[in-house]
Design a protein around this nucleic acid. Structure first.
Length: 481
RNA sequence: GGCCCGGUCGCCUAGUGGUCCAGGGCGCUUCCCUUUCAAGGAAGAGGUCAGGGGUUCGAAUCCCCUCCGGGCUACCA
């Protein structure tokens, strides 16, 4: 039997980094078994649809290099792959369950249910449906259902247990008396998630259900539905959640959570994949840099962690830096391209690559590091220019002297610039870093950045001198900024 | 409240009864290199394996209890 796994997001927002991690695991498993990955859109809640969500899913996964075999846009033998286009399927199956006595029509109003729950809460009882409509005669219920608004509920046995042997969490049991008669078909004719997921996983011949740990509590509901249909239950694996620094599920308030945000911030897809794969999975060796292909080869479900893993931006940054440093110049330029303003001279950008490759953790950082070459609009504080150890007059004198040396640097290249500037520093009895600090600020607007000699060469003599003169003016004029 | 899950350095983790006075990576500190910042190299701090009881010659690893954290508890997914 060929392995078939699925990624089944709800189009309720942009692609979340936690879903990506789960999808990755599905993808690894599918590929290493020569199986298929299916994308299924679970849009059974019409109120929560977010426009563009499907685009976000497609764009995000394509960027990361995750491809699937069947889905809404690529079609496949089990189409359609969007649940809202499969309504008759669910309605028919729900009716089958009612006909077979495993489910029943419920006519309770939302108001009654709310009141019931309020009472139960007040009495400190378990809040669950009281089964009122379960006692209506099926014939009568069938007749009323033709005219009255209703839902379909599953008849959950009053006692006993349901159990799952989860591939990650092991054997888990739930007492049935804590589970209510869940709604499986809503009054608008849409199935609830629970019904739809079971029917589709069965109809689409899904062989393994891998999903987030947050689904674990509703698994007994699904098990009961599988059981009601009499279908064979595929193996399940729940994978731990990706957490925020506070230990709660990673969410917007923790910062960036969407794939497109990381893309926009200049992270490399390979670094994201590598980092993400290692939240909740470890190979058992001390290796940690893995390409997609290696992950497909190495990843194993029985090495998946049970505890949730916290999101760690610093670690992601480290991975990203590693991946950036492994890029060739051509590749790096290519990756940088989307971040570069149109009017930046690409030939000049290319020359900066060796200078910034070791220094950038993200593509955006790299871009910002060389921005001074492309704009004369630098802003920096006078206090930064002066630094902490010298008087403004001393800095002004150093800058003045540097311009002399720079004027004489011929040709205006890193070696001659270095030679000239070191000479002046020696002559003044200043340490070189001390001497170059104000020059760097004057020319780049920052105290840190790419190597100075090379930076000045790339900037050119005229622009370099103009900037130093402007800094001098700032010092003796004491003007703003 | 109920049900379920989890708990090894700040973070990701290795470890499944003895080779663990717990290993690696990120982060942090120091040093080297050095035109700044990085990168690279070296060294280091950091863990009573949540706590308490057992079992055992021996426990991070098995059992029980407690504590803490999280998830779910909708005609959301």
């Amino acid at each position: 039997m060929t392995v078939r796994v699925r990624f089944a997001p709800s189009p309720t927002g942009s692609l979340h980094i936690g879903s990506v991690r789960t999808t990755l695991y599905n993808y690894f498993f599918a590929r290493q078994n020569g199986g298929k990955l299916i994308l299924r859109i679970e849009d059974t809640d019409q109120d929560r649809l977010v426009a563009g969500a499907i685009d976000s899913i497609y764009d995000g996964l394509a960027w990361l290099g995750v491809a699937w075999d069947e889905g809404p846009r690529e079609g496949g033998p089990y189409a359609p792959y969007v649940q809202s286009e499969r309504l008759p399927l669910y309605q028919q199956r729900a009716q089958d369950l009612v006909d077979g006595g495993a489910a029943y029509f419920c006519f309770c109003s939302k108001e009654r249910l709310a009141a019931m729950r309020a009472q139960q809460t007040q009495r400190k009882e378990i809040t669950r449906y009281d089964g009122l409509c379960r006692r209506i005669d099926p014939k009568e219920a069938g007749a009323r259902a033709k005219t009255e608004s209703h839902v379909v509920r599953l008849k959950v046995p009053d006692d006993g247990v349901v159990a799952l042997d989860d591939l990650v969490y092991g054997h888990i049991e739930w007492p049935l008396n804590t589970i209510e008669d869940q709604v499986i078909l809503k009054s608008d004719g849409f199935p609830t998630y629970h019904l739809a997921v079971v029917i589709d996983d069965h109809l689409m011949d899904i062989t393994h259900i891998f999903r987030g740990e947050d689904w674990l509590p509703s698994t007994p509901k699904h098990l009961l539905i599988w059981r009601a249909f009499g279908w064979e239950i595929p193996p399940h694996a729940h994978v731990p959640n990706v957490l925020g620094p506070d230990g709660k599920k990673l969410a917007k308030r923790h910062g960036a959570t969407k794939v497109e945000e990381f893309k926009a911030q200049g992270y490399l897809p390979a670094a994201m994949v590598n980092y993400l794969a290692l939240i909740g999975w470890a190979p058992g060796t001390e290796e940690e840099i893995f390409s997609m292909d290696e992950l497909i080869q190495r990843w194993r479900m029985d090495q998946v962690q049970r505890a949730g893993g916290k999101w760690d931006r610093a670690r992601l940054d480290w991975f990203n830096g590693m991946y950036i440093r492994r890029l060739s110049e051509d590749e790096l330029l290519h990756e940088l391209e989307p971040f570069l303003p149109a009017d930046w001279d690409r030939a000049l950008v290319r020359k900066t690559l060796p200078l910034i490759r070791e220094r950038m953790r993200t593509l955006v950082e790299g871009r910002d590091m060389i921005a001074f070459l492309f704009t004369d609009d630098l802003t920096y504080e006078r206090s930064v220019l002066v630094g902490k150890k010298r008087q403004p007059e001393e800095i002004e004198r150093a800058l003045a002297k540097s311009t002399v040396a720079l004027r004489y640097a011929q040709p205006f290249t890193a070696p001659t610039i270095e030679h000239g500037l070191r000479g002046i520093a020696d002559e003044m009895g200043w340490k070189v870093p001390e001497f170059t600090a104000p020059i760097r600020v004057a020319v780049t607007g920052s105290t840190a950045g790419p190597p100075l000699w090379e930076s000045l060469e790339l900037l050119g003599k005229d622009r370099t001198l103009a900037r130093i003169e402007r800094a001098e003016a700032l010092l003796n004029g004491g003007g703003p900024s």
